[in-house]
């Protein structure tokens, strides 16, 4: 996470937004000036904009698509991003919508993104229907790459079955992401693991871990 700009992509429902929010909070905690950009035009229901107050408490500035969370189903992009992309004093975490359709949005900013300062991540949850096979994962990875017109620098393992996720599931995800990494030559950034997961003290992994807090979803249920 040594670069200034972090773009998080992934398949639909991979956990991108939750991971983006947690990455932004982790960076802010290290005293960096962080801007969080929610560019998810795919899903009007669950978006990281929900986590706005949590981010702002930690000193993260949030910019979103226009009309986000207003119930107006219009996927209009914000111009704010163009202001921060060249700004060397800020760190940017950009949460992009799922699949190729979501990633196409970031392609629109391609010429403004300083590539040497940027990492692009691809999140994989091997328990989602589209990415529970290597073929499926490779297909979406390729689609995201061509739609965003950028290359993927890192993979993120987000093996996740919500509250029922166990140590065994994380290790299944680890094996899966290692295989994906070998097949593509793309290194692994980290394993995203929810805080408080059972047997979390026993987790021994060679790659870094991002310990996650839950920031989104319906808390009423």
């Amino acid at each position: 996470m040594d670069k200034r700009i972090h773009i998080i992509t992934g398949h639909y429902g991979s956990g991108k937004s939750e991971i983006s929010v947690n990455m932004a909070m982790a960076m802010a905690q290290k005293g960096k000036k962080v801007i969080f950009a929610d560019l998810d035009i795919i899903n009007p229901y669950f978006r990281s904009n929900e986590a706005r107050s949590m981010l702002e408490e930690k000193g993260v500035n949030v910019i979103t698509t226009q009309y986000a969370n207003s119930n107006v189903d219009i996927p209009a992009l914000t111009g704010d991003l163009s202001r921060y992309l060249p700004d060397a004093t800020t760190c940017l975490v950009i949460d992009v919508g799922g699949d190729d359709a979501g990633s196409r949005v970031i392609g629109r900013y391609r010429d403004e993104i300083p590539l040497q300062d940027t990492n692009l991540y691809f999140v994989v949850n091997c328990f989602r229907p589209e990415t529970n096979s290597m073929d499926g994962t490779m297909k979406i990875l390729d689609e995201v790459r061509s739609a965003s017109r950028l290359s993927v620098n890192f993979l993120i393992n987000n093996a996740n079955l919500l509250d029922s996720t166990t140590m065994k599931d994380i290790l299944t995800g680890r094996d899966f992401i290692l295989e994906a990494s070998r097949a593509t030559g793309i290194p692994i950034a980290f394993h995203a693991i929810m805080k408080g997961i059972q047997e979390s003290n026993e987790i021994q992994l060679n790659e870094p871990i991002l310990w996650m807090e839950k920031t989104m979803g319906f808390t009423n249920l």
Partner: peptide
């Protein structure tokens, strides 16, 4: 098999 799914996806898969 256990999968993490959206309600809408589960309907379609079913």
């Amino acid at each position: 098999q256990k999968l993490l799914m959206k309600g809408n996806e589960a309907i379609a898969e079913a």
